[in-house]
């Protein structure tokens, strides 16, 4: 579906992307997790054909590179910055981008109606985009990416600036797209999103993959042990353990426990362990 081989990109002396190699499979949500400036958007831009890699190759949907317009027909992009015509209505935006993707006539009308319904904007379809809320614009941004029914979706931080309720709704939609067989490349710096949505995650920093695997495997390999924190009358005790349940039972049996807390390793911890920095530094 998508294949990157030793892809690199530099801006002068700054290495934005360094020797990235990975493959995304059909029906998979592949996450790029990394802090701002890690190279996620640059990678997405190269996959979308906006930037030309300095080295390496990118193959879309079975061979052609993103510099070929026909290859881009199978790609839908929801850029991080909203890219919509504010003076046009929701329907007009979708119709326009649908036409550019080669849709016409009844098929176009049906796809536009479907996309509006999918992102629950049917009731506002005739309103100009400038009257939409931030969350509605985000949803329309996603609708533009899927209106032509592409097998590969590039979603670049699609939940930026979205309230928690809308974010949850967006997650549901992305999982629904996955269930329809779409391959989704998803960039984020929120580990919760990566953990919830992604089948595999590539942890990226300074343009390089530090690790690439499923969330569970990454945590197991790089997350370290769980931490059990016990509050006792004589103070706090922290114990690292690969079997936190057993540690809790043992502490309970010792007695004098006021409270117990178990911190399982997560992707934040994975990133910290890999880089020595927190994800949001």
């Amino acid at each position: 579906m998508l294949n990157l081989s030793h892809v690199g990109k530099r801006y002068g002396s700054l290495v934005a992307v360094d020797d990235l190699t990975f493959e995304a499979n059909p029906g998979e949500i592949f996450g790029f997790l990394g802090p701002n400036g890690a190279g996620k958007t640059t990678t997405i831009s190269m996959i979308a054909g906006l930037l030309r890699p300095d080295s390496g190759t990118i193959q879309l949907n079975g061979g052609a590179g993103p510099d070929q317009p026909h290859a881009r027909r199978g790609v839908g992009v929801a850029p991080q910055a909203l890219a919509l015509y504010e003076e046009l209505t929701g329907t007009e935006n979708l119709t326009f981008f649908g036409k550019l993707a080669g849709l016409h006539g009844t098929v176009l009308r049906e796809r536009v109606a479907w996309a509006l319904d999918f992102v629950t904007l049917s009731d506002r379809q005739k309103d100009r985009v400038k009257t939409y809320s931030g969350g509605m614009k985000r949803r329309l941004n996603l609708a533009v990416a899927i209106v032509h029914d592409p097998p590969l979706l590039l979603l670049d931080e699609p939940t930026v600036g979205v309230d928690p309720q809308s974010r949850n709704a967006m997650f549901e939609k992305i999982l629904e797209l996955k269930s329809r067989g779409k391959t989704v490349i998803y960039t984020t710096h929120y580990m919760e999103e990566a953990e919830r949505l992604c089948d595999r995650v590539g942890i990226i920093d300074r343009g390089k993959f530090l690790a690439l695997d499923s969330v569970d495997n990454l945590i197991e390999e790089y997350g370290g042990k769980s931490v059990v924190t016990a509050q006792r009358r004589d103070g706090e005790v922290r114990i690292e353990s690969s079997d936190p349940l057993q540690e809790c039972i043992k502490l309970q049996q010792e007695g004098g426990i006021l409270s117990l807390r178990v911190d399982r390793p997560d992707l934040e911890r994975v990133f910290l362990n890999l880089t020595g920095r927190a994800l949001r530094d």
């Binding site: 054909g49 906006l50 317009p69 881009r72 992009v77 850029p79 910055a81 890219a83 550019l100 080669g102």
Partner: peptide, 14 residues
């Protein structure tokens, strides 16, 4: 500046 040019450029048109 609004990003729509990028969207046009990723569309399957030259």
């Amino acid at each position: 500046t609004s990003g729509t040019l990028s969207r046009l450029r990723v569309a399957p048109i030259g």
